[in-house]
Amino acid sequence: MQYLRITACFFSFLSLFLLITALASDYWIAAIDSSNSGLWKDCDFSMCIEYGMNVKAFIHATRAFLLMGMVAGAVSFFALCASFSHAHIGSISIKHLAVSASFVAGVCSMIAMSTFTGKYRVKPSLAWIGWSFGIGWASFPLFLITGVLACMTPSSPTETRTSGWSLFLNCLGRFQLHSGRKKKGSTPTV
């Protein structure tokens, strides 16, 4: 089952790399006159003007959620790398940390990209969406794929008896919310 762990690490690295590239690059919007703009600055030919903090609220929200997604993605990547040698750090399962961080990174990147998409209006005759915007959106499903792959990996680096599909179903069962029904013989919690 090491192939699942290796594949999860690869997807985690790829999604984190795409998210960082989208966050740092300035080709979110490309204009016909060869100018481009991103989350941090606007460039016209060879001259760039940095935005700083004087931007609209949706740009701040996009930046914030992409940064949170980047941190969660980094946690997921390093947890998956650590899962090759350890199953737990103290009482924390590395596998569950990686799965949770991957899904959080995916949700944060989806919120950021949706915010930018919903608020930014591009006039097709003057500008179009740039490649930075595209790879930002690409990171969202890749983080979700990473979470599924991480969920399917065995908890222990030496565990190999269970199939990937049963591990995935077992993982989903652990993350399900309790239905709220009182079990027979259980005491109510306060």
Rank of each mutant, 00 (worst) to 15 (best):
A87M: 07
G106T: 05
C81M: 15
V107R: 01
S156P: 01
C171Y: 03
V55P: 00
C171K: 06
V75P: 06
G147A: 09
G136T: 04
F11Q: 03
S114C: 07
S35E: 03
A101H: 05
N170S: 13
F17C: 10
L97P: 04
V104I: 15
F84N: 03
L172T: 09
D33V: 01
M113I: 09
Y27R: 14
S102P: 10
V71K: 08
S179L: 02
L80A: 06
G136V: 03
S15R: 07
V104D: 00
A57D: 15
S91C: 08
K184I: 13
A138D: 02
F13I: 04
I29E: 11
Y27Q: 14
V190N: 11
K95C: 01
T7H: 00
K41L: 13
S37K: 15
S179K: 04
G180R: 02
W40R: 10
L167E: 14
A57N: 15
L80G: 08
A61K: 07
P154S: 15
C171A: 10
A30P: 00
S34C: 04
A127M: 06
I135Y: 08
V75G: 09
Q2V: 11
S76C: 15
S125Y: 10
T189L: 08
R63S: 06
L97C: 13
V55A: 02
L14N: 02
C81I: 14
A72K: 01
W40D: 07
A82C: 06
V75Q: 07
V55H: 02
S83P: 01
C81S: 11
Y27E: 14
S114T: 07
E159C: 07
S163G: 13
F103C: 03
R63L: 07
K95P: 03
I89K: 12
I92G: 02
S34T: 08
P154T: 02
N54P: 00
S83A: 12
S37P: 03
R63Q: 12
A31C: 13
S179M: 03
D42S: 15
G130S: 04
S163M: 08
K95Q: 11
S139K: 09
A64V: 09
A127R: 05
F17S: 11
G164N: 07
H60E: 06
S125E: 12
S83W: 05
H60R: 03
